[in-house]
Design a protein around this nucleic acid. Structure first.
Lengths: 342, 342
DNA sequence: AAATAATGGTATATCGTTATATCATCGGTC
DNA sequence: GACCGATGATATAACGATATACCATTATTT
């Protein structure tokens, strides 16, 4: 292992001052062609790269942004990350990802280390149970921040999200129009606004159609857990003929669980998901879902952050993108035999 | 947006010098209880966090490591990342992830930015087509580096990997003992040693059983692509009754493709995967596979990096962990009707 | 030829910390 | 009362880059 080359090493090798070497590296100032070549050759030879800690301290330039997310394992999120990186990399930024696994303590440690390292901006899906102190922390340090998916009540940051309420209203409406009367809401995490928004949309549609009571069933965002949970839901509420799900992952888990109970999704029970991950189209039966394009969402998110970085004083804004109903095989008209009619 | 608090802000508010404030923050030196409290109160009030760029420049302490990986979207990798983070976080490190999406250019940009930011160490799954210059770059900067899964030929870094050859030999052997004669190798990327090792294991087992010729079929590591590719494989080689796959993702894709062709995995065609991702057990039929524990692998990986950081001069080492055969429903004895016997 | 402008390069202060040396002050000792 | 060792705090020089001001040379103008 060699030791790290620095600017003075390059300058010495090229026989110039560090000031000159620095100007060559950055292509600024008035430097003759001859010395420029000498310096570049030396830099090449030593594999020299300027230390961005020192550079950013002096110049204030920060071309690195962080994406603090609750679960990188989720394929939807992975797609979002692709969109974000593609956009920001063309602008010369490095994107590094911090995974909180939805743990508020881990998130806090991550964000503190992030702030200490003084990077250019933050994209953030707040973890469950994020407390006020964490918001205050980011605010106190003036970090350009855009929240994503989950919107803190404080409203002090830019936000990019999904039109959850409208989407769930559409999904529920669609199922009701197919003749379903007992429609349950399945999956999701308790604490955050996203799920509340979706549930509200579901409830509004239920009310519109005069359907009561609403059935809401918790379940972590995991395929295996959903398989087990759907059994309990069906045991407690055998009359349910349709299920709107908080996400595709739990929806697919629910379909698997139903199949193991001898029920056919799309015939005996209709299931609709949210997100449109790759597996939704590949599942058997294929999953109807409320689709959003994670890749495009990622690009949008990146653009909002750049705008914020370039203009730190504009008031925070909110961008909501719509979700679109995609009908596949997992939903269908209500079966006569399944629900006893009165 | 407030502006970032610095040490001098804290010191002023507490009425002491920056030297004193610094010592309080780090708990070193001789400081009276009274001033300690004053400084801590000021720091608290301002949400002060020391700038790690300045701190690490002066002290040389770097408590941040990078994980440069080829695909975060892969659930196996996501589990590895969890293992890595859990281990390193207890040691006070921040883990940030760089996703190359197996693109050598993107990887180079990522690694250059990484080096410029002078962090403590690097975990690295080299992208396809990584060139010598990239290895030289890391070496020239003396970055403590551990490669993972894919091992560069140069052998200059520590490495943690899987016993690919032995595992594939086991898998192929198992299928041959079930009576299969035409066994194909399916999936994987072309360039890297991992796949070559696995193919070698497959070929050795084929030779041991006097089975020829070997059939090797390329396919990107994607479920949808695998569904399509398996059709072509079966069209070209209808006599194949068993398929060893380069990974669970393509194996599951292959099963889906076979099912759409009216074939039943485990009866008409046996399929065996590699990795044991969550979906392997949840698939229908459930997938037999060569299992490795990604979480444990991650912890191991982290430990090797810490050892390297603590002792930069020890010669590079290699750790290979075994994979274990897990038999589920996707494999079974060869069917009489399926292969014409001579 | 003297004044001015353009060119190519360097000295130096600075960014926000930490490590080291240094400096008062005070109580205790002989 | 002069000396000593603790004690508690500070002044200052790094770390590796960049921005600015500045200084020599040449080249150009009149």
């Amino acid at each position: 292992m060699t030791s790290k080359p620095k600017l003075s090493t390059v300058a010495d090798l090229a026989g110039v001052s560090t000031a000159t070497a620095s100007q060559v590296m950055r292509g600024t100032g008035r430097i003759s062609d001859a010395t420029r070549k000498k310096v570049l050759a030396a830099a090449q030879k030593l594999h020299y790269l300027p230390d961005s800690r020192a550079a950013s301290m002096r110049s204030g330039e920060k071309r690195e942004i962080g994406f603090a997310i609750h679960r990188i394992a989720n394929p939807f999120n992975a797609e979002v990350i692709s969109g974000v990186s593609d956009f920001l990399e063309t602008e010369g930024y490095l994107v590094s990802i911090l995974d909180s696994r939805d743990n508020a303590d881990r998130q806090r440690r991550n964000l503190e280390a992030f702030i200490r390292s003084s990077r250019g901006g933050l994209l953030w899906v707040p973890a469950e149970n994020t407390d006020e102190r964490t918001y205050a922390l980011l605010h106190a340090h003036g970090v350009p921040t855009v929240t994503f998916l989950r919107r803190p009540g404080t409203g002090q940051f830019d936000h990019v999200g999904i039109e959850n309420m409208a989407a769930m209203r559409t999904a529920t409406d669609y199922l009701a129009n197919l003749g379903h009367r007992r429609i349950a809401y399945f999956g999701g995490e308790v604490k955050f606004g996203v799920r509340q928004e979706r549930i509200t949309g579901y409830q509004q549609a239920m009310a519109d159609h005069g359907l009561a009571p609403a059935i809401i069933w918790d379940c972590p965002d995991d395929k295996g857990e959903a398989m087990a949970a759907i059994r309990q839901l069906k045991a407690k509420h055998p009359e349910v003929t349709a299920i709107v799900c908080n996400g595709d992952v739990v929806a697919i888990g629910a379909m698997l669980g139903l199949q193991r109970m001898g029920l056919t999704p799309g015939k005996d029970v209709s299931v609709i998901g949210f997100d449109d991950i790759q597996d939704a189209a590949l599942a058997t039966p294929s999953l109807s879902t409320m689709a959003v394009s994670p890749y495009q969402l990622g690009r949008r998110l990146a653009r909002v952050l750049l705008d914020r970085i370039n203009d730190p004083d504009m008031p925070p804004g909110v961008a909501l993108v719509p979700a679109e109903l995609v009908v596949r095989e997992s939903t269908g008209p209500v079966q006569q035999a399944a629900t006893p009619q009165r």
